[in-house]
Design a protein around this nucleic acid. Structure first.
Lengths: 212, 212
DNA sequence: AAGTGTGAAAAGTTTCACAGCG
DNA sequence: CGCTGTGAAACTTTTCACACTT
C-alpha cells in the first residue's frame, strides 16, 4: 500500500489518515461506554500510538481539546468522521465475485463499518450466484452505466490479475475515484484516482522476513 | 499496518522489505519470459517505484549489478528470496475459519505464492467444515500441541475481535512468531513477535478520504 | 554509452519538551 | 495541577546527482 501523491485536501500525512480511522473506532467504543471525555494519553494507548502523535494528528484539523481535561468524545468522533468524508453512507461496488470476491461479500466487515456494497459484477454472474452471492450480480459490461446511474465512487476489485488493468481502465473511465485492489499487480491510474492495494501474499512474505 | 521495531536483521527500512517482495514477483515474470538481465530502470518501472529507490533497496544486501548492463535476473531473484527467508516452504496455520477465514482458505493466493496452509483451527470445527473447508479443521485447544509438533511459525488470524487477543496470547505462548491479523484491533505481543494488520474496513475508509 | 553504487540533500514523519490554558 | 497545542529536534525514508565501472 502506498497511494502516490493526491490532493484535494492538503498537507496531512498519509499515515495520519490511517490513524484517524483507528481513533474513530476507539472513540465509538468509548461512546458506547458512555464516556464523555478522553485524554490524549488514554486514547493514544487504546489506538497503539504515542500521545504526542495523537495530538499532532488531531491538530491538523483544528483545536477541540480542553486543556487540563481532554477531548469531548462525541465531538471528536464527528470531526474525524467529517474529515474522512464519512458523514454520509458511501455506496461501493465489488468487481469480480470469484473465490475471494464472493468471500468478501459474505464477510460483512465493510457493512459493519458503515459502507454499503450495493452491487457485484462478474464476467459470469451465474457462477457467482451459484457461489451463494445474494447481492445482485451484474455482467461486467453493465458496470459503466451502473456507476453513472448510482454515482458510485468506490470499488473493491477482486478480478484475476490478467484482467485487472483492463477492468480498472473501465472503472476509471466510468468515474470511479477510489479502488481497493486485491490483485497482486501494480495498477496504472490517473493521478486523481486513489488505489489501495491489499496484497495478502505480500503481507505473509513480509512476516516471513521477521521470523528468525 | 505498522509493526513496531523488531530486529534479528538490521538496518533495512520496513517498507523496503515490502518492496523486495514486489521486485521478486517482477523478477519471476522476467524469468518466465527468459529474460536474463534487467536494469534498475526497467525493473523499477514494473514494480512502480523510482529506479534510485530500487538501487538503494538492493544495496542493503550487497552489490550484484554490472555497471552498464544491469542485474542478472536469476541471481537477484535468489538473493531476494534468501533475504526474505523464503528459501524453503513455510508452513502456516489459519485460526478462525468463520466467514472470512474459510473464504481465505478457498482463495488460493497464499499457495500460489509458495506458502502452505497446513491446518485450520476453529472454536466450532464442524461449523467450519460445513462451510466447505476441506483442510483439516481442529478445535482451538489443540493449537498449542499442533504448533510445537509441526514447528509452525506463521499464523493467519481471522477470529472475532472479542477473542482475538486471547487467541494471540495462546499462539505466542506456543511459539508463533508472525501473525497476519484480520481483526480490527490493536494486538499486544512481545517484541519478538511480528504482527501485520490487514484491516479491510480501514482501507476503505482511507480511500473515502481521497475521493472528493 | 549505459547503468550501477553511493554520499549528500530533500522530504516526510515522529518524538520531545514545554509554554500556556482551563 | 493536568493536559492540550505546538515549535523545534530527531529520526526515517526518498530522491538527486554524479563518480565510476564494464
Amino acid at each position: 500500500m502506498d497511494p502516490s501523491e493526491k490532493s484535494g485536501k492538503i498537507d496531512i500525512p498519509r499515515k495520519a489518515i490511517y490513524r484517524l480511522s483507528i481513533y474513530h473506532r476507539c472513540l465509538q467504543k468509548l461512546h458506547d461506554n458512555a464516556v464523555e471525555t478522553v485524554s490524549s494519553t488514554t486514547l493514544a494507548r487504546a489506538a497503539g500510538v504515542k500521545s504526542s502523535q495523537l495530538r499532532k494528528d488531531l491538530a491538523y484539523f483544528g483545536q477541540f481539546g480542553t486543556r487540563g481535561l481532554g477531548y469531548p468524545v462525541d465531538l471528536l468522533s464527528t470531526i474525524i468522521r467529517e474529515a474522512l468524508g464519512r458523514e454520509r453512507l458511501q455506496p461501493v461496488i465489488l468487481v469480480g465475485a470469484g473465490n475471494l470476491g464472493s468471500a468478501l461479500l459474505h464477510y460483512h466487515g465493510f457493512e459493519k463499518e458503515g459502507f454499503e456494497v450495493i452491487a457485484a459484477f462478474d464476467a459470469n454472474p451465474d457462477a457467482a450466484r451459484a457461489r451463494g452471492v445474494t447481492l445482485p450480480v451484474h455482467p461486467v459490461d453493465e458496470i459503466d452505466s451502473f456507476i453513472s446511474t448510482h454515482s458510485v465512487k468506490l470499488a473493491i476489485l477482486c478480478v484475476p490479475v490478467e484482467s485487472a488493468q483492463a477492468v480498472v481502465n473501465r472503472l476509471v473511465a466510468a468515474g470511479i475515484q477510489g479502488i481497493l485492489n486485491f490483485s497482486p499487480i501494480v495498477l496504472e491510474v490517473p493521478a486523481d484516482v486513489t488505489v489501495n492495494n491489499v496484497d495478502l501474499a505480500l503481507e505473509l512474505e513480509h512476516l516471513s522476513y521477521f521470523i528468525r
